[in-house]
Design a protein around this nucleic acid. Structure first.
Lengths: 211, 211, 211, 211
DNA sequence: CATGAATGAGCATTCATTCAT
DNA sequence: TATGAATGAATGCTCATTCAT
């Protein structure tokens, strides 16, 4: 009927429906029936496009992290390195409704990855991509002298790991303890860490103190 | 039969069985049948001690975090503040098999807490307890002058939040991306963070650099 | 409620329901739902007693062949060997409604045994038991001189095989081509074969010619 | 595309694929999808040539029995009547891989014919054709004096029925109890039966005793 | 002729829970 | 306390079939 319903966009449409369910009610509430209902199609149609539920879950996980990564890639790299690092990490935090959904979905899938190899593979890819980007940014920061005097001195790959852990920790705590870490607290905590990591980078915005 | 099988210890025994299942195969693989089987009792017996599955899950979550908190409380507070802070946070990380199990279970439950109010309440309690302890420790550290010259200056309650996020982030990443964050890397990352937070505190152990 | 509903009799009751379905509508129409409905219990109850459908099918197959074999064992061995042989084989043929049901079920299961190892094991057992009994009977017949002059001479184990094939063939044809092989034709064909195999045994009943 | 793919040959090609599935994995494993996959065409293509699955099954059953019947018709009728009878019946038995496939398929379909009228019609036709041929052969045998002295005397139509039952019984037992009735045993049993039916016909081949 | 999207019913199985003993 | 029978809903999945292209 609708020529826009190509195979690719149908899978995406189903993934979006799945993501909304995960964000609203959790990964356990995802069933083929629920997804079909939320997407307004029949059960058979869902399984015409994803031959197993696991395949659908993997696609949706990949889809949601790709959306985040694409948003990061699209960031214009104007401004200083410190500001750019802040921008990038902010894209990972649940600062608005769109990112709140992504974060809840990310935490749900990443937690399940602990006992699901196919999700673990996606999680590994994602982490690797983020680590590469962060490492590169930290290399530039060091070259710009932004980390001078830091002790222990900046070690870009290691500090990228630590930076990612800080971001993941903020996301994890914000998601697992709803209403205790509102957006301004999250940014405050992030900037506090960045200010100590790159002391010569100027603070990105005033009024960013939290809790 | 066995007079040692009091109600309390029976619940604990079932919780331990549940915890092993979660650690090994994930929260979704927990069923009343599985728990009963793992504990070597009948299905009816499980439901005699926990009237619903949710009650059993809540008990088990509480049980596993209590175990961690009790271990932290039991730490002898000799040594300096910096060393003590390191000791406490190390108890949270998956550095040995026992803590690896706890971490996998903690991440699974905390992730589910995002959409399960009764688990969220437990998670909130746990975080509050940890935050209190960390805040108190940081207050002592500041009084001891360990954070002198830190910029932005040490703000105990806020920095406790950030510290907890770092720990949770390391746990989350270690669990969701198995085999990529072995124990020595985790401690290296933790010490790196602590060394910058409390620059005048001596490093607790040599050779703790990680990549 | 009903103390007669012991575990064993419940399985038997379900097997009987299954057998009626197979006889009336074929093995493909057997579903857990159908069996539960026919037995007047819930779906869950069926699977409480048979953990898989295959297990239920195997039990039912074993049950139906056991019923036939037990009926054969119960035959009083009065009369001559020839007459006894005729009696035994008659129990295998669809000569009345009870045996018609058994034969339809037997053919359905034995045919499926060609591609189902667990049914094949049961079929093998059954054939072995029948072969043993027939071989023994033929040994007695030879000792009694009933097969004297037969050419090729009676070879009890081999002729038992052939005899079983004749019986199975009559059953198979009667079942697969309904209404073409009524009871009197079946007995006529059987007696015709027996008369040639044991020429000195007297014919068991007059009027047994069939077309 | 290929002009050789006429409607008729396409149906035949699909039937052959179906037959291979039945022989290898049983009638229950036949689905439109499986047949399409095995024949290397799309699901829609299968249903373009057979409007229902039942139609496809009926066509395949007819196809497989026609193949057997055509092979029998093609037998050169040189040699004596006894030898010819043996030749014909041998074509029905699973003595080589081709006939083993046919027999497995025949048993599966004939068993299902017990509760499927459209398959029953085909089975009835097949049996009628075989009975006619066997009756005619037995008439010639009687005319040639091959059954002289047989007691009860040869009754061509009745003995054709019995002969067919013997053949079907051997096929049924060989198929339902794999590995217990290898080719040489089957021929041995068949020749044993024929030798007693037509005592003056010479044995077709030496060494055909089976156990 | 052929494709593949879509449907909706049906399947075996797992599950938490209730209840009589 | 503990058992296990029983329930009924829900699950992922397979299937024959229809239909627009």
């Amino acid at each position: 009927m609708n020529p826009m319903s190509t195979a690719a966009s149908r899978q995406t449409q189903l993934a979006e429906a799945l993501i909304q369910i995960v964000a609203a009610r959790g990964l356990d509430q995802v069933s083929v029936r629920e997804v079909a209902g939320a997407a307004g199609v029949s059960v058979g149609a869902v399984q015409h496009h994803f031959s197993t539920k696991d395949e659908m879950l993997a696609f949706a996980f990949r889809h949601v992290v790709d959306r985040t990564l694409r948003r990061i890639d699209a960031l214009r790299l104007e401004g200083g390195v410190a500001q750019n690092l802040s921008q990038v990490l902010r894209e990972l935090l649940p600062l608005d409704e769109e990112r709140r959904v992504e974060c809840r979905v990310y935490v749900a899938f990443a937690a399940r990855a602990a006992s699901d190899p196919s999700l673990a593979a996606i999680q590994k890819d994602t982490q690797a991509q983020l680590l590469d980007g962060l490492t590169e940014t930290l290399l530039r920061a060091r070259a710009d002298g932004l980390a001078d005097g830091l002790n222990p001195p900046l070690d870009p790959p290691v500090d990228a790991r630590l930076l990612l852990a800080v971001a993941d920790g903020l996301v994890f705590d914000a998601v697992s303890e709803p209403d205790r870490l509102p957006p301004d607290q999250l940014t405050g905590l992030l900037e506090r860490y960045l200010a100590r990591l790159l002391p010569t980078g100027q603070a990105p915005s005033p009024g960013s103190h939290a809790r």
